[in-house]
Simulated scan of single mutants.
Amino acid sequence: MTINKNNNLYAFSILVKKEIADHIRSWKFIILLAIILLTCVASLYTALQALKNTAPAPNDPDAAFFFLKIFTTSDGTMPSFHLFVGFLGPLLGICLGFDAVNSEFNGRTLGRILSQPIHRDYFLNAKFIGALTVIGVLFTSLILLTIGAATLLVGFPPTFMECNRLFLFTLLTIVYVAFWLNLSILFSVRFKHTATSALVAIAIWLFFTVFYPIIINIVAKAVQPNPYASEAEIMQYQHFMLTIMRFAPSQLYSDGTSMLLMPSIRSLGPLHMEQIQGAIPSPLPIWESIKVAWSQLVALIACTIVCFATSYYLFMRKEIRC
């Protein structure tokens, strides 16, 4: 029994290594990686220029978190680092997953792979684990390179608290990109042609990136309370708008990164006047920021699990019917 288990684990590791090698050697990954590197270098340059030319305010609670500002500050010519990652990260996930399964069907290689003494679910698990490993190594290396370059340029390293927040930011970024990876794998299982799965995944990304904010603005104008509304009505309106905005994965990621990279933010929702009066502007401890951003992280993980479970179910049914 132990021999069979070890053989299965060895076969699974071979599949994962094959997927990692295929992704690294593919032109689509190399081109998208070059775009991400160039944009992140540009955002790092603009952030350092903005921080060098702007003196910190005397009452700024984030003044002590210089390295966190590198990832959130821009001089206006280009978006900041975390905005670039939030925009291009889904494209990387879609790029790695849109042809994960249907390309094997079309190339008639799936039967050869499953004819080996391995479990059928190992194939789909290896597709996900291999792509997730590439994503994790890529963004971890990218953020470490950014910290290293900034350390060489400014002359001092980040603090321990800054490192903790950047580690959590890296983890949240990997989870966010993993959601789009699982969504593209789901379409790769569902649709026979790779072009169809890629177009559907990109269409959903464009909808939540471009068109969903437009729909939200239209809804906001339609249900906006009158200027003489009570505080309770205004709070109810703001809570409603925040709820429907968080149906977009990009909004969940934006809320989470704001809490982790901007310690002065104390809440992601509207506050009553009683909560604001007497509050001293100071950065939140890291555990308090995690508590506020925890629901966003759990929502992204839940969406990722749902997509993977659906693709797993469809793949196993397709295999049973073949």
Rank of each mutant, 00 (worst) to 15 (best):
M1A: 12
A11G: 10
F12A: 04
V16I: 08
D22V: 10
H23Y: 02
K28P: 07
I30T: 06
I31W: 03
I31K: 02
L33S: 15
I35G: 05
S43A: 13
L44V: 03
Q49H: 05
K52T: 13
N53V: 06
A55V: 12
A57C: 04
D62L: 08
F66Q: 10
D75M: 02
G76N: 07
F87V: 04
L88G: 00
G97I: 05
R108Q: 14
G111F: 07
Q116H: 06
F123V: 15
N125C: 10
G130L: 06
I135F: 00
T140S: 14
P158C: 02
F179S: 03
F179V: 01
F179A: 04
W180K: 01
L183H: 07
I185V: 05
R190N: 06
T194P: 09
S197N: 09
L199D: 02
A201V: 08
F208V: 04
N217S: 15
N217T: 11
A222E: 01
E233I: 14
M235C: 06
F240G: 03
M241R: 13
T243K: 15
T243V: 09
T243I: 11
M245G: 14
R246Q: 07
Y253T: 01
D255H: 03
M262Y: 00
S264H: 10
S264L: 10
S267P: 02
G269R: 09
P270H: 08
E274N: 13
I276C: 03
P285R: 08
E288S: 07
A293E: 10
W294R: 11
L297K: 13
V298W: 13
A302F: 03
A309T: 12
L314T: 07
F315N: 03
